[in-house]
Nucleic acid binder design. Sequence first.
DNA 1: CGCGCTCTTGATCAGGTTCAACATTAGTGG
DNA 2: CCACTAATGTTGAACCTGATCAAGAGCGCG
Lengths: 237, 237
Amino acid sequence: MSERQPCSHHSSKDSLCSHKGCVTVVPIFSHLDDVQLKEVMSVVHPTHYQKGETIFRAGDHTSVMYIVSKGSVRLYRLGESGKEQVVRILQPGEFIGENALFNEIVHETYAETMKDTVMCQINRRDLQKLLLEYPSISLKLLKELATRVDQSEQQATRITTEPVEKRLAYYLVETLTPEDKSNEVILPMNKKDLASYLGTTPETISRKLTEFEELALIKRLSPKKIKILNVDGLLLK
Amino acid sequence: MSERQPCSHHSSKDSLCSHKGCVTVVPIFSHLDDVQLKEVMSVVHPTHYQKGETIFRAGDHTSVMYIVSKGSVRLYRLGESGKEQVVRILQPGEFIGENALFNEIVHETYAETMKDTVMCQINRRDLQKLLLEYPSISLKLLKELATRVDQSEQQATRITTEPVEKRLAYYLVETLTPEDKSNEVILPMNKKDLASYLGTTPETISRKLTEFEELALIKRLSPKKIKILNVDGLLLK
DNA sequence: CGCGCTCTTGATCAGGTTCAACATTAGTGG
DNA sequence: CCACTAATGTTGAACCTGATCAAGAGCGCG
């Protein structure tokens, strides 16, 4: 385990600023007033990580919740046979570590930064105190977890009921940012991880994308950038 | 939607009894004292369902949390192509409906009783009031949801990283009730549903079980009852 | 400019699905 | 309690999606 020291928010203007940013981007705290926010900030510790660092790994027993403030984090598991499975990619505002926090168990997942990343940490005691003091935060957390259960179950359902082609097509459409009129998808991960997330292999992803391109459904602009030419056509796949 | 009327707990000794049973079997309420329990019971409505009834279906917008008091419930989804996927089987003490409750969305899952079943219902308003009044209930709920996220992610990981044989072997071992020295597994569902849950087909399940039997790892006692002869051997599969 | 690494494409192979026939079990009414 | 029917489970054989292995192309980075 790497020894990370939280960049104290008392020592520099910069980290104080990022600290406030860290807290305010988070949906679960967004409804709090200034006084409450200040209290939250007093128990939250922002920490910098470089690209590729491991935050925690299966077997760890760290009881900390991590909230991504800046950057992105790859969350993955290892199957019993050692094969890697990407569970999801965390963007700013999302959190992890809650299971170890509420259940006093060891982690079953691995978390690793994909870029230089700032994460805010809250330890078990502090969070529990916050939750008992401000029950509305619990409601936000419940909402978030309920969503995540649903998403995870949907992902499992797709993997078992739909062929790769469809899973990929749906993924592309859902990753499309709705406000962007250019219909371009920026993949948040490389093909290897995308393949793992979708429950397939990089080779198959590549082949299916080629197929889509031949059907004029998409156009590859660069490895991570894809323009969708025909949304409806993709969804019919 | 079927019109279910809650069997009022004011009208009969029997339902009052089952009502109390309903509430007390539930882990999320188990830590409350008698006064608090009474308050919970005043907003919880036990309802009887016959075998095979649909509790809710994808598209419903009922904002109610259901807690299984007696019986069992099959929770499933339909893939985009209509194929059915069993998400899990609910036993007494477990609950569903929380996503619709916290997120004001329509259900994406189907819930259907597998036997005559009693479920307790709490509506959104009452639950939120309870959670704000007794934050400790939120912590219990969070714990439960965090566990469920983990389980669902593990299930997804297994389906993508392990072959059917292993998934089935693990399932059998994990379904084994530890206190039972006879090493007998009672399957809580039929082969079709088990196949769906494990992401495969009834035919494959059947074949693999035959294989296990030929290797003297298990013995089929009846369609739903399997004796495990060699736990370690199964886990090595 | 050259060494990684990721990505793409081709050829082969296998795990698991599908379709079909048969066996068994469970449920129902006489 | 048995007979009958429907549903569930089992087994066999053909087929197919997608994985694996291998080689080459493109790209980013020092």
